[in-house]
């Protein structure tokens, strides 16, 4: 083989493309949340369950499977807890609750999450 002919394995990767051929990085719920800037208004929840008795009777509990940050959890005693401090303010729970049992408002000005891309 002539000295100036390169074999495929000798060809350098000029753009560093090889660094970008691995599988896409996936994030779980917590790490997804960690990509967001959230300023928590400590002690001032903007979301509240109006009546836990209503949640106890709710069979579907659609809030627990539709919140995009999984902020709704059913505790052992059957009560529903809202992890409001990691809310991203989309409004899904307000609409999905079959009994309109969520008191929903926006966090106060300057609080809540901030998108850098959006």
């Amino acid at each position: 083989m002539a000295a100036n002919v390169k074999s495929p394995s000798d060809i350098a990767n000029p753009t560093g493309l090889a660094n970008f051929l691995g599988p896409p990085k996936l994030l779980g719920r917590d790490d997804k949340l960690a990509t967001l800037v959230i300023k928590v208004d400590e002690g001032n929840p903007h979301l509240k369950i109006i009546d836990q008795g209503v949640c106890l009777k709710c069979i579907e509990k659609p809030c627990t499977v539709t919140c995009p940050v999984e902020n709704y959890k059913v505790e052992d005693n059957g009560h529903t807890t809202i992890y409001w401090s990691s809310c991203i303010e989309c409004g899904t729970c307000r609409i999905i609750c079959p009994f309109q049992n969520i008191s929903w408002r926006y966090p106060s000005g300057g609080f809540g999450m901030t998108y850098r891309y959006g």
């Binding site: 970008f20 940050v69 989309c90 609409i95 850098r116």
Partner: peptide, 30 residues
């Protein structure tokens, strides 16, 4: 919904287009 997003990203067709990507921001809106 967040799992469904990961599922879509890992679809064999979509995954190939997203090779080497790093998530910078997650978001959801109506």
């Amino acid at each position: 919904p967040d799992e469904l997003l990961n599922e879509f990203k890992m679809h064999p067709v979509v995954r190939r287009l997203l090779r080497g990507t790093t998530p910078e921001e997650y978001s959801a809106h109506l």
